[in-house]
Deep mutational scan, measured.
Amino acid sequence: LQLFIKTLTGKTSTVEMEPSDTIENLKAKIQDKEGIPPDQQRLIFAGKQLEDGRTLSDYNIQKESTLHLVL
């Protein structure tokens, strides 16, 4: 599924993920695209901070969801 990652600067990146992927996997993919180390990334979806060990489906993240990346 395609996700949009929006940064505080207003920049939006697109990443392709599976519902079974963990937040950790997602942060690794963001690191590949943006060069931001996972330990500096905080991802927010629906007002919640996402935890590394959980999966996208745990948070009911659907295709074309927008996640907010806070550093």
Rank of each mutant, 00 (worst) to 15 (best):
E18Q: 13
I61G: 02
F4G: 02
Q49N: 11
L1I: 15
L69F: 03
G47Y: 04
K63L: 06
L3W: 02
S13P: 02
L3V: 09
K33Q: 13
E16P: 04
L56N: 01
I30W: 02
P19R: 08
M17G: 05
Q2L: 15
Y59P: 00
P19T: 08
Q31S: 12
H68L: 15
Q49W: 14
V15M: 09
V15F: 14
P37V: 05
N25T: 13
E16L: 14
S65T: 08
T22S: 08
N60F: 09
P19K: 07
F45G: 01
G53V: 07
Q40D: 08
E64H: 15
I5E: 01
Q40M: 11
N60D: 08
I61K: 01
L71P: 09
R54H: 13
I5Y: 08
H68A: 06
L1E: 03
G10W: 03
K63M: 13
E51C: 07
R42W: 11
V15L: 12
F4I: 11
S57A: 14
L67E: 00
V70W: 12
Q49G: 05
K27M: 05
S65M: 08
R54N: 10
H68T: 14
P37Q: 06
K29Q: 06
E34H: 14
S65K: 04
R42S: 11
G10Q: 03
P19H: 07
P37N: 07
K48V: 14
T14M: 14
Q31E: 10
T55L: 11
G47L: 03
T22W: 04
I44A: 05
K48D: 06
G35A: 05
P37A: 09
T12C: 10
D39E: 14
E51I: 08
Q40N: 08
T14R: 11
Q40S: 09
D32F: 11
I23A: 01
D39H: 13
G35N: 07
K63C: 06
K6S: 08
L43M: 03
E51V: 06
Q49H: 10
G53C: 06
L3A: 01
I5W: 03
K48F: 10
E24C: 06
E34T: 15
R54P: 04
L43R: 00
G53H: 14
E34Y: 15
T7N: 08
A28Y: 12
I61M: 06
T14S: 10
Q62S: 11
K11A: 10
Q31M: 13
L69A: 02
T22L: 09
S57H: 10
A46T: 05
I23S: 00
F45D: 01
Q31C: 09
S57V: 07
F45R: 02
Q40W: 09
E16M: 13
P37I: 04
L69M: 07
L67Q: 01
S13I: 15
L50K: 00
I5Q: 00
T7H: 14
I61Y: 03
F4T: 11
L56A: 03
L67S: 01
D21F: 03
Q49R: 08
L56S: 00
E34V: 14
P37W: 06
Q41M: 14
Q31G: 09
L3E: 01
I61W: 03
R42Y: 12
I44R: 04
L43C: 01
K48E: 12
K33H: 09
E51L: 09
E24D: 09
P19N: 06
E64Y: 15
Q62D: 08
R54V: 06
K27G: 00
L50A: 02
T9S: 13
D39T: 10
K11M: 10
A46E: 15
T22N: 04
L67W: 02
N25V: 12
P38F: 13
A46D: 14
L1D: 03
T55V: 07
R54M: 13
Q2R: 15
L43Q: 00
A46S: 09
E16Q: 11
Q62P: 10
P19Q: 08
I61P: 02
E18M: 14
E24L: 14
G35R: 05
E18L: 14
S13C: 12
V15N: 00
E18R: 14
I61V: 08
F4Y: 13
K29S: 05
R54E: 04
D58C: 03
P38V: 15
G53F: 11
G35W: 03
P19M: 09
V70L: 13
T66W: 09
I5K: 00
L8P: 14
I5V: 07
L67R: 00
S57C: 04
N25H: 13
L43I: 13
S57N: 10
G10E: 03
K6G: 03
Q2T: 15
L71Q: 09
F4N: 08
S57K: 12
Q49K: 09
Q2W: 11
L50S: 01
V15D: 01
L43N: 00
A28K: 15
D39C: 10
Q2H: 12
V15I: 14
E18Y: 14
T7Y: 14
D32W: 10
L1S: 04
I36R: 03
K27P: 00
K48C: 07
I30R: 00
E64M: 13
L56H: 01
V70M: 11
E34K: 07
S13K: 07
T9M: 11
T66D: 03
L8G: 10
D32K: 13
T7F: 15
K29Y: 08
T7A: 07
L67P: 03
L67H: 01
Q40T: 08
V70R: 08
Y59S: 03
K6F: 08
K33E: 08
G35V: 02
H68S: 07
T14V: 14
L69N: 00
L67A: 02
Q40Y: 09
D21R: 03
E51M: 10
E18A: 12
F4D: 03
R54Q: 09
D52Q: 05
K6V: 15
E18D: 12
T9V: 07
I36W: 14
P38Y: 13
E34F: 15
D21A: 11
S20M: 10
K33N: 09
P19G: 07
S13W: 15
T14W: 11
H68C: 11
N25R: 13
T7V: 09
V15E: 02
T7M: 15
Q41T: 06
Q31I: 03
D58Y: 15
K11G: 10
L50E: 00
K48W: 08
T9N: 14
N25E: 12
N25Q: 14
K63E: 11
E64T: 08
S13E: 07
N60K: 09
K6W: 09
Q2P: 07
E24N: 09
L1Y: 11
L56Q: 01
I23Y: 01
G35E: 03
E51Q: 10
Q41A: 05
L43G: 00
M17P: 01
S65F: 07
V70I: 14
K27T: 01
T66S: 05
V70N: 06
I23M: 03
I30E: 01
Q41H: 03
T9P: 05
A46M: 14
A46I: 06
S65C: 05
E64S: 11
S20E: 11
D52K: 04
E18T: 09
K48Q: 14
L3N: 01
D39L: 09
L3F: 08
T14L: 13
I44S: 09
K33T: 11
K33V: 11
N60V: 04
D39W: 13
I30G: 02
P37Y: 05
G53E: 11
E18N: 13
L43P: 02
Q2E: 06
L56R: 00
Q40P: 02
P19F: 09
D58F: 15
K29N: 04
D32Y: 11
L43V: 07
D58R: 02
L1R: 03
K33S: 12
E16V: 12
D32A: 13
